[in-house]
Design a protein around this nucleic acid. Structure first.
Lengths: 152, 152
DNA sequence: CTCGGTGCAAAGCTTTTGCATCCGC
DNA sequence: GCGGATGCAAAAGCTTTGCACCGAG
């Protein structure tokens, strides 16, 4: 059974599809459901594998296409943490947040700072732009004996 | 003839090479010089082409390898604006800054906001990490008839 | 019935890798 | 000379594309 968040996400997608005259294909809703069953970050390939494992027949092309749609309707956020490897996460029902990545072990921390909103406003005024979105990632190193899973 | 900035950048690289027991290969210095002759952002392929055009024989592998070295010694900054396409820019002698990208025309604005430093400090304390670096990119749309070179 | 969306596989693009050679130290 | 660095080309990895087919509206 679907959670409240999942149902609401489904509505958002439905509205977006109707407003933009796209088609309500079962694949799009299967993928959305799969994403909202996933905690934390994931990449396109993992999503593809997870869906295949549920014996749902989708192609990589459809996964990528659908991810674009979901990013466009703001149900999913796309991050470019490393090179050449986009990671995604569900956006609806989650607080907007940014990331701090430990370069020692790769652990990802999430945080939220209201001052960022002020920065966005200031920049928007300065360049006469409407700022729709942002990506802030901090790169750090642990201080102590934490970071149990050091990379190499 | 070399500018003051170029000479200082060269010294930074020399120091880094000596400290880390790397080798002072002519390729590394050619690439550094090429980068410091370049204004604004560039990608690995463009850099490779520019160097080839000066009839200096380097391979892509060396370009990528050297970019890594230059990023490590903080002479060059690497950005992941879009998917699958890293762009770089020289870092030495330039003010630390962040970017606002217009999604209409792709134009890149640069700005600097001291409040970001406070955000970094707060996050560092919160997760007991030492924050070495950050990447902040805002995504916007123009408001008016600016943005002459709209994409499509 | 139309044509947007899909599946599949192949192509595309940036980046990395293997290996023989080269040259800084 | 030793071993890191390079050049070349091939391989890898993520993402996109071409094409025929399917199915939502």
């Amino acid at each position: 059974m679907l959670s409240k968040i999942q149902q609401e996400a489904k509505e958002v997608l439905t509205n977006y599809i109707e407003k933009n005259q796209l088609r309500k294909t079962p694949e799009r809703f299967s993928i959305l459901e799969m994403i909202y069953d996933t905690e934390g970050h994931f990449d396109a390939e993992q999503l593809y594998i997870n869906i295949k494992n549920k014996s749902i027949n989708v192609s990589r092309a459809t996964v990528y296409n659908t991810l674009d749609v979901l990013v466009a309707c703001e149900l999913v956020t796309k991050h470019q943490f490393g090179s050449n490897h986009a990671v995604y996460e569900k956006a609806y029902g989650s607080r907007q947040h940014d990331h701090l990545i430990c370069m020692e072990c790769g652990e990802v921390f999430e945080f939220c700072d209201p001052r960022l909103h002020q920065i966005k406003q200031t920049a928007a005024e300065l360049f006469d732009q409407k700022v729709r979105n942002h990506a802030l990632t901090l790169y750090g190193n642990c201080q102590k004996e934490k970071c149990p899973n050091k990379k190499k």
